[in-house]
């Protein structure tokens, strides 16, 4: 009811008075919850430890410098492993994600039941963090790079398939219709009408996920699934802080390079 008749002429407000009051009420409820939660956190925190957090940080920080450069000799292999875990994991994920995405998209799915199954695969892959996948897989196939690669792959299927099937659903249907009108088969309609339209998304998603996976694979070693995280865990446990800082620098460098590569590739595609 934004229009109001008054003696002074027409007046306009976005909300009615009642709606405005409701909005304020929601704000009040929201703020009360935040305040309550803040109190709860404060009660459960031992402030004695927090008080010297600054000193502790400076202490560890000072032990971290200078980074132990000679340790690099032992890091090349784990860095290489980490990159391989991310790359092969992403490739596996993409190979599986493509058919899943076509089965999940409303306009290409062969059957609603198959769509449900595809959506379930996507949700279950996405709902489990790659660290947890790795934890389970280390139990199943033993510690090492293999478990890490599969963990990264399983986690990425859902991510890639979801973005891909959304892209498939958003294509311009006219182009498909035009191909259909020529007497092309369903497979040919997909090849000429749909694939060219989603190819940039496919490449973009792949590179983006690879970039994320480089970062994720650096921590997989914490649960024994290979990569540089193994060294990180060992160094922290032995309080070798100069090694820890060296590893952190290497991870930072790797991530920067991977971001640079993915930005370049994405730019080239679009």
């Amino acid at each position: 009811m934004p229009k109001i008749d008054r003696s002074s002429g027409l007046s306009w407000r976005k909300h009615t008075t009642k709606k405005e009051l409701t909005i304020w009420l929601y704000w009040l409820i929201g703020l009360s919850i935040v305040t309550y939660a803040w109190n709860l956190i404060s009660e459960k925190t031992i402030w004695f430890f927090v008080q010297d957090a600054g000193t502790q940080a400076i202490d560890i920080g000072s032990r971290m410098v200078p980074p132990k450069l000679s340790y690099m000799d032992k890091l090349w292999q784990p860095v290489w492993d980490t990159i391989n875990i991310a790359t092969i994991g992403t490739i596996i994920a993409l190979i599986i994600a493509v058919p899943v995405a076509f089965a999940a998209a409303k306009n290409t799915t062969p059957h609603p039941l198959i769509r449900t199954i595809a959506l379930f695969i996507i949700v279950s892959s996405r709902s489990v963090n790659s660290l947890i996948w790795a934890l389970i897989l280390v139990f199943i196939c033993g510690p090492g790079i293999f478990a890490g690669t599969i963990a990264i792959g399983l986690r990425s299927i859902g991510f890639c398939a979801k973005l891909l099937y959304e892209a498939i659903e958003e294509i311009d249907h006219n182009q498909v219709e035009a191909i259909q009108a020529t007497g092309a088969s369903r497979a040919q309609q997909m090849l000429y009408g749909i694939v060219p339209q989603v190819l940039p998304t496919f490449a973009g998603v792949g590179v983006y996920r690879w970039d994320i996976n480089i970062r994720e694979s650096t921590i997989l070693g914490l649960v024994g699934a290979g990569g540089i995280g193994l060294q990180l865990n060992g160094s922290i446990n032995t309080l070798a802080w100069t090694q820890v800082s060296m590893i952190l620098l290497v991870i930072l460098g790797t991530v920067i390079i991977s971001e640079w590569i993915s930005a370049k590739v994405r730019h080239a595609i679009i």
Binding site: N174, A178, A181, G183, P196
Partner: peptide, 15 residues
Amino acid sequence: RRRMGMIFQEYALVE
């Protein structure tokens, strides 16, 4: 359908 050619409003080319 092979015997019927169709021409579209927004061209409907595969861009």
